[in-house]
Design a protein around this nucleic acid. Structure first.
Lengths: 340, 340
DNA sequence: TTCAGGAGTGTTACCGTTCCCAAACGCGGC
DNA sequence: GCCGCGTTTGGGAACGGTAACACTCCTGAA
């Protein structure tokens, strides 16, 4: 009943194969100087004993845990969750396990605590899903022996390598799409003012308008959620001159769509709406939402690649950190049309 | 430039405090038999050296990594992502770090591989976000020295402790709500046939109808997404007798709402719609969705508690595993009304 | 006064790897 | 036949903690 499970260790394998534990270690680490025959004998022994190396012991001596830490925020939402997914996916194929440390708010202290927790567990590197600068700043305060990468935030040219979406271009794409349809100008329902991503989208939108010589309507930055979009949508719906709205994300767009609908303003016949993100079901909003797609999972994968590269070249510590920018893509669906 | 960082170890602390390393260890582990004054001296030394214990060494000897493993599937979606969040939250306060191993599909092999990966990293226990039996079965094949808990799946009374939503009750709640409003019967847009959660919701719905003596319309189980809801919604929209639809989740409901809208059938005046899950923005669908709320994060937290309890009592190995069921709650919004 | 027993502390072994270094071996060239 | 050198192998010593045990005090009861 009581299951005896004498876990095999290196010594057992060595004994069975008739070699020293050191040779077993060499086979494990693919050291070249092992005779082919010996190697096979060892591998056989490992197989028959169902041996697996004790990673704790290995970590103790090598100081490498083959674990990566993720600092996450609001990972219940589609974007961050997808980044996490992408990171894990890439990490797995690279032979790393992923540990997560979530922070409830984006202040520096919780971030430092998270870093600390991950450090204790000897992670080899950290990826921060870091929409706000406080996180990157926290990262910078982290001990320099840890490799860090920030993903998904905005592109301040800080000392932390970054992978990010080109939010400005995305916003420009959306705005230009609406202008090209013939709209005189484009209103914007912005994200929170203290989020760099929101700021970049505002900048891209404003830039596109100005280039086209269009009037730049005022904005009232609030929140990322549907409620915020609904409230601002009600305001916009009352204004007859509004014919095109660019929303800082799809959730906001959902709220705007509902507000317009309730006010009796038809989309896209009377008002065109564009979102940002391309969430899984945005294509089933009423009407299907034209939006700017970010490939979150790809963002995650890229950040992992960057981290690994960074870890592999410890020399260029002083070199300027890499900043990878991924360009988003406009997905045209049914929520945009030419004005009447 | 080259930052010297002579990381302090226990020996250094001991030397500085003028005690043996063992005493430092005792302070660290809150062993009672340490004089107050000595303890303070040691704590001071730890502070001034910025000492942190090496978890790898600790793990090596205690065989406890203070890390928990999560096996996740489709964690980009709100439900699983929220469970993960809840788990991490509870794990953190309990002093555990959380490592994740995602599986791309719910077959047994990938699950076993994930377990293996987590085992190598010496996790103390595993929580599987396990919507399908293949996962729990995989868990059962795992070595018995690992504590496992499954969360979020259906409640087959297997040997693995489980935390789950009472899907049948949730479905009953939704169906009875519609019947109470005066609908003759309730149609159901089901989830995938091979998902136990979908089956349970079907069972609850059918049960409520039968108890009320209402006719049980046919179902066409498909997928969990909005597209699936849209397609089936089109079919239902054509049928004039349909006045109430219970959807297996909110995403399906989104698709159904759109199909009804496009067919010119007004919600809730002509057709009532109920969802399941209560996703973040379901309250901003058109109209705001009446739905059955699951508290995913709570589910996650409960599963962690269960796992820790399970780990703390190694005696009742043979005892019947615990099964915790959380009852969902009906949230009435604007998508349901009495039939005309 | 003596001795049991507990509190407080130190000594030593051990966890399972990898790293450093030395030994044994094979082989070609003188 | 001997030497030098590269390949293959093994024997320790780390790595940084915890566990087991021994030892010294000190207290209180016999």
């Amino acid at each position: 009943m009581a299951s005896k499970k004498p876990v095999a260790v290196m010594r057992d394998v060595a004994k069975l194969a008739g070699v020293s534990h050191q040779t077993v270690s060499r086979v494990l680490n693919e050291h070249p100087n092992v005779r082919q025959e010996t190697r096979e004998r060892v591998l056989e022994a490992m197989e028959s004993l169902d041996y697996r190396r004790n990673l704790a012991a290995r970590t103790l001596v090598t100081r490498q845990s083959h674990t990566l830490g993720i600092i996450g925020f609001e990972t219940t939402l589609f974007g961050p969750a997808s980044m996490l997914y992408g990171i894990e996916d890439a990490a797995r194929t690279a032979g790393y396990l992923v540990s997560i440390a979530m922070v409830r708010n984006l202040d520096r202290r919780p971030v430092l605590e998270a870093v600390d927790r991950l450090r204790q567990h000897a992670v080899d590197g950290i990826i921060a899903i870091a929409p706000k600068p406080a996180v990157t700043n926290g990262l910078l305060q982290a001990p320099s022996d840890l490799y860090c990468v920030a993903v998904g935030g905005a592109g301040e040219a800080g000392a932390v390598p970054t992978v990010r979406i080109d939010n400005a271009t995305g916003a420009r794409l959306a705005t230009e799409h609406l202008l090209a349809l013939g709209h005189r100008t484009v209103h914007h329902v912005a994200g929170p003012a203290d989020w760099p991503e929101a700021q970049e989208r505002i900048a891209g939108w404003r830039d596109a308008l100005q280039r086209a010589g269009a009037e730049v309507p005022p904005i009232v930055p609030q929140s990322w959620n549907a409620e915020s979009g609904y409230l601002q949508g009600q305001r916009l719906a009352r204004d007859e001159s509004v014919t095109a709205v660019f929303c800082a994300n799809d959730r906001i767009a959902l709220g705007v769509l509902r507000a317009l609908h309730e006010a009796g303003r038809r989309v896209p016949e009377e008002v065109s709406v564009v979102g940002f993100d391309d969430m899984p079901d945005s294509g089933y909003f009423m009407p299907p939402l034209t939006t700017v797609r970010q490939d979150f999972a790809e963002l995650g994968r890229r950040s992992l690649t960057l981290l690994l590269e960074h870890m592999a070249e410890p020399d260029d510590d002083a070199a300027s950190p890499a900043h990878i920018t991924v360009t988003p893509e406009l997905v045209v669906r049914g929520s945009t049309a030419a004005p009447r």
